[in-house]
Amino acid sequence: MKNDDGARKRLKISVPHFNNSDLIKGYSKTLIGRCMNPEEQNVKFLVVTLPKIWNLEDKVVGTDLGLGRFQFDFDAEEDIETVLKMQPFHFDYWMISLVRWQPRKTKNYPSEITFWIKVLGVPLEFWEAPTFQSIGDALGVTKDVDLDYGRVQVTVDGYKELIFETTVDFKGGEYYEEEEAPVTLRYEKLFGYCKTCFSLCHKMEKCLQTIQSTDKPKEIRDEDESHYDDKARSYKGVVINGNGGQQDRVREKREYQGKGKGKMFEEGEKKLG
Rank of each mutant, 00 (worst) to 15 (best):
P130A: 05
L139W: 00
W116Y: 07
I53M: 10
V145F: 00
Y159D: 11
D73K: 13
T106N: 12
T63A: 15
P182N: 08
D64F: 01
I113D: 10
M86K: 14
E128L: 05
F45N: 09
T167V: 05
V61Q: 14
F89P: 11
E125P: 04
G62Q: 05
V122N: 11
F45Y: 14
E128Y: 04
R151C: 02
T106W: 09
P103Q: 04
A181D: 03
E128A: 04
V48S: 13
Y175K: 13
N55E: 13
A138W: 07
G173Q: 04
I113N: 13
L124M: 10
K143E: 11
L124F: 13
E81L: 10
Q102R: 15
V61K: 15
L65W: 01
K85F: 15
V99S: 12
V60G: 02
D144C: 03
V61T: 10
L147S: 00
P182V: 11
E179I: 03
M86L: 15
D64T: 00
L65S: 03
F89Y: 10
K143W: 04
E77N: 04
G140M: 04
D157S: 09
D58T: 11
Q153D: 06
Y159S: 08
R69W: 08
K44H: 08
T63Q: 13
D92R: 02
E125T: 09
P51F: 00
D79M: 07
W94Q: 09
K44R: 14
E180S: 12
